[in-house]
Design a protein around this nucleic acid. Structure first.
Length: 290
DNA sequence: CACATTTGACCGGT
DNA sequence: ACCGGTCAAATGTG
């Protein structure tokens, strides 16, 4: 098992991205604030424009960065994505010991792989923020040494469009008013927005309209149709995160959706891959095939 | 009825 | 074996 990924580059890249993401988040917040402040009296468009420009700059840098690297990573990942795919190979011969409590018909073994490769970042905010995407709760867990349970959400477009974005929300120990939200993976669904770049620049206001929909992550916007399991789709998109179609993501993940006052006190921290898997593990997916 | 949430079982990693 | 993430049947909600 070679490690195709140059480690130092990877670390530098992570730091770089982290910085950029933070900067962009701040710009997003600033934009939000500005927009709210200036909405009544229609002045200082230049200020808004300026923020938009800053945002665009971050956006472009991020996408450039990722496109540079994606050349290597993506090609590797994609090569594998076909191979691994489905769960119709439930680790093969389980020597007939397959019946537990679930109906034997549904043998889930091998049906899901734990993700290791997704970008993750964390926000802490007094309300559960809405990032403009529809989430669906799929689980809740008591966590060891934690007072409050952790809730698990996935994008409602998971089966629909193969979007693999998920997030985990947990009330904070010492401050039950605050929620820590960990986002894992970027949305690959084209949900609301079309071209992030354009939005940042010219239609600065439009995206905010979409956010006015719901209040909290717990009130998920009921927008989806139905879910049919399409493993192939999700497998493909699983390997896309390096492409970072997240631009819209970061634009939308601003603390906007909720009530006004909370905006400022939202904190962000981006941990990228590291929090889930320390070293190599970019290859989490294809390592089983080497 | 079609969707979302709840909740305990299942699964993979350590 | 344990822990945390995910699945999916049961249940809730409009």
């Amino acid at each position: 098992m070679g490690t195709p990924w140059p480690e130092k580059l990877s670390i530098t890249r992570q730091k770089l991205i982290k910085e950029l993401v933070e900067g962009k988040q701040c710009a997003t917040q600033l934009k939000t604030l500005l927009h709210k402040a200036l909405e009544e009296d229609h002045e200082s468009f230049s200020a808004k424009d300026l923020v938009s420009k800053i945002l665009t700059s971050f956006t472009e840098t991020l996408s450039l960065l990722s496109s540079i690297e994606s050349g290597e990573v993506i090609s590797q990942n994609l090569a594998v994505s076909h191979a691994d795919s489905h769960c119709d190979d439930p680790r093969s011969d389980d020597s007939g010991e397959s019946s537990r409590k679930r109906p034997a018909s549904k043998d889930r073994r091998g049906c899901y792989r734990r993700r290791k490769t997704a970008h993750t970042w964390t926000t802490v905010s007094p309300t559960v923020e809405n990032d403009g995407h529809a989430w669906r709760k799929y689980g809740q867990k008591e966590i060891l040494n934690a007072k409050h349970p952790r809730s698990y959400f996935r994008c409602t477009r998971k089966y629909d469009q193969g979007c693999r974005a998920t997030k985990q929300v947990q009330k904070m120990e010492n401050d039950p008013q605050m929620f820590q939200t960990t986002y894992i993976g970027h949305h690959t669904c084209r949900d609301i927005v079309k071209t992030p770049q354009i939005i940042a620049e010219t239609h600065g206001l439009t995206w905010e309209c979409y956010l006015a929909n719901s209040e909290s992550a717990f009130a998920v916007t009921p927008t989806i149709k139905q879910e049919s399991k399409e493993e192939a789709l999700s497998d493909l998109t699983d390997n896309l995160p390096s492409l970072w179609p997240d631009l819209k993501d970061f634009q939308l993940s601003g603390p906007m959706g909720s009530d006004n006052g909370d905006v400022v006190s939202t904190m962000y921290s981006c941990t990228d891959t590291a929090s889930l898997s320390l070293d190599i593990d970019f290859d989490g997916d294809f390592s089983d095939f080497l």
